[in-house]
Design a binder for these strands. Structure first.
Lengths: 213, 213
DNA sequence: TTATTATAGACCGACCGTCGGTCTATAAAG
DNA sequence: CTTTATAGACCGACGGTCGGTCTATAATAA
């Protein structure tokens, strides 16, 4: 059946479906055919919009990261907020679960998805670091933080949190995960020279994910 | 041509060649045929020794990580060494370049190799963390270090250093790389509660890599 | 204004080369 | 003559290509 749509809409349809499959099945285990069947288009149409399977992954990641970065920029440029509050809001804005349209299915532990994980982590670091660094520097001049390497510290913290706390890469027990989150909070506070306990709110996320079970 | 060899030798031949291709071309871009041609064997022989392409990657990584971990264990169990010295030696023992048989070609920037990167990082963390953690704990009781979360701090530092300093993932300029190394040293010292400057030896590696150019 | 033609671009699916993996035959060793 | 090691023909799935079709709409003619 042939149905003609607004190109932008079609493109987003493909992106939506691809994102879903990449997230649930992993990139390499997702077939072009999977996407075609779900969207309801033919091969040719897919390759009319994208040059390769990998280009779709890049587009999915770009779209995904960009959302978080845009939100971060808005928060960062608010002149009425102190640095710690900005950090808090930026972190909260990174997960679409709450802020997004519909709640994402939690059961999808994105196993065996190294390609996507790495690329999205790289993109996140490349685009979110500048925004966060500026906030940290604001915090330093406000006296809330203290570190000689704000940018590099942000990078290290992003890598550490995204990699170590991500379900799907390691298979930590709930208890270990909580322990890591607690340690991470301590490391954040230590490396940023922040008040002990000032980042404890992060733990809220890992509490809840345990309660749900 | 049919040449029969000691199975263990054959297996290692395959592993050697596979490691070379995986490192230079990346895992997914390396073909079974690449390996067959280089080793000089047929498909059947390959699959007589390994069940899948992925199993070869796992074996390559296991062999690679195990070498470093074994060396680390020897160092860690030496009763005559202080903790900081052990750390130094363990870190130095992780890169086969110097300690290995022949010098590895440096030109191979292992691009697009997320699968291997992630797996080897995961393996390294899983197996090297316990050894390093014990040394850190020794250092704490000796008064050289001070942290409430030795294990998690080790994990965090391993992830951060391996990911951020790895050429091939990001494409940092030499200057930026050096800056990150300097920051890493500071972060290590801060999170471990070590004497400032006590980990400065790490910078030696990044100095040299610049001199060579 | 209405009918006709031309063009663009969204869409289709048969086809192709490559790749990971399987299977059976057989040479060598014990 | 049984076991082990090696060979390579073969297979199905997959990513990607290509020639061609369909349709909305703009341009042109009646």
């Amino acid at each position: 059946m042939r149905s003609i749509k607004n190109p932008e809409e079609r493109r987003n349809e493909i992106l939506d479906v691809a994102e879903m499959f990449f997230t649930t099945k992993g990139y390499s285990k997702t077939t072009i055919k999977d996407i075609l069947n779900e969207v309801g288009i033919a091969k040719g149409t897919f390759y009319y919009y994208f040059q390769s399977k990998e280009e779709v992954m890049d587009a999915v990641i770009t779209r995904f990261v960009e959302t978080g970065v845009k939100a971060a920029k808005v928060i960062a440029s608010d002149p009425n907020l102190k640095a710690p509050e900005k950090i808090f809001r930026i972190i909260m804005a990174q997960t679409p679960e709450v802020g997004g349209k519909e709640k994402m299915i939690e059961e999808l532990h994105q196993v065996d998805n190294a390609e996507m994980h790495q690329k999205s982590l790289v993109e996140t670091i490349l685009h979110l670091t500048p925004v966060l660094t500026e906030v940290i520097e604001q915090g330093i001049s406000e006296g809330a933080f203290k570190t000689p390497y704000p940018k590099e510290t942000v990078e290290f913290l992003l890598v550490g949190s995204q990699f170590l706390l991500d379900e799907g890469i390691f298979k930590w027990e709930p208890h270990d995960l909580m322990q890591k989150a607690i340690a991470l909070v301590h490391i954040i506070e230590t490396t940023l020279g922040a008040e002990p306990g000032s980042f404890a709110y992060i733990l809220g996320r890992y509490d809840q994910s345990q309660e749900g079970k």
